[in-house]
């Protein structure tokens, strides 16, 4: 008897073949196109600054740019981690205990459709410019997404796996720790990535409205002073931050659910 080593090595859309460099090339092409269009002067430089002016804007701002960047990253990460832990805890509790579910389901379901951005003025009113207000805002916004993701992920644990855990008569805490939670991790991935995007949005909006540091603050100041290169620079940096954090999150989930990716043939 031989083991079936023919684990699929490609995703559902087929292998990437020789296309692995394409994303880098398309980004480069876009940069070149941007440079060319800016150089022709067809579009007012106030609306479309050249790539060089954006680089020069970074030099002009100097080391303070690092503080702005660090402030934004700190707010996103701390709020997201707190929201992730809180959301997972509440989601697990809701699935662990029917009573907790009944108690919290109404609150979660009525709060979930509300855009967390609408809470920004309220948090500003209560906490002013204090750091804690921004972090708590992100915590609240992300935890709601994570609660729903956790509840849904546990509901999607394969029936056979759940039945096996139940048949063994495992005590409920052990059943959750050793069967349900590991089986639910792959399903949590999408919810956590959405929550991260929510965290980035909330931090930027809160920095627009009440901050003295951060990329959102820089964008707001650049808008008022009509320094478009700084505005574009801040947006690009924000994109990198968002992309980088998402890559880290994906890497963590890839490690935690490598078995599931292998089963789906998505591990290339």
């Amino acid at each position: 008897m031989t083991l079936s080593k023919d684990v699929p090595q490609q995703g559902v859309l087929g292998s990437s073949g020789g296309w692995t460099m394409v994303p880098t090339l398309t980004v480069c092409a876009l940069l070149i196109l941007w440079g060319l269009v800016a150089r022709t002067g067809i579009i007012n430089p106030l609306l479309l600054p050249s790539p060089l002016s954006v680089v020069l804007a970074a030099r002009d701002i100097g080391p303070t740019l690092g503080y702005h960047l660090a402030a934004t990253v700190f707010r996103i990460v701390s709020g997201f981690v707190l929201g992730g832990v809180l959301g997972t805890g509440i989601g697990l509790s809701m699935q662990y205990s029917r009573k907790v579910f009944i108690l919290l389901d109404g609150i979660v379901e009525t709060s979930r459709p509300l855009p967390a951005v609408a809470l920004v003025p309220f948090f500003l009113l209560v906490f002013g410019f204090a750091e804690i207000g921004k972090i708590l805002l992100v915590t609240v916004g992300t935890s709601l997404v994570v609660v729903v993701a956790t509840v849904e992920a546990i509901e999607r644990v394969p029936a056979g796996v759940l039945r096996w855990g139940l048949v063994l008569g495992l005590p409920r805490p052990k059943l959750f720790r050793r069967v349900i939670l590991p089986a639910a991790i792959p399903e949590l991935r999408a919810g956590f990535r959405v929550a991260l995007a929510v965290a980035v949005t909330l931090v930027i909006v809160s920095e627009f409205m009440g901050a003295t540091y951060g990329l959102g603050y820089l964008i707001n100041v650049a808008k008022v002073t009509l320094t478009t290169p700084t505005l574009v620079l801040s947006v690009i940096l924000l994109g990198w931050v968002s992309w980088g954090l998402d890559q880290i999150l994906r890497g963590m989930f890839d490690r935690a659910s490598a078995w599931d990716l292998r089963a789906r043939g998505a591990l290339r």
Partner: peptide, 19 residues
Amino acid sequence: GGAGRIRGVVFQEDSLLGW
């Protein structure tokens, strides 16, 4: 007396722990 007394069970659906 409930689950856990008969533990030798095989299901139609997959019940192996993938991790």
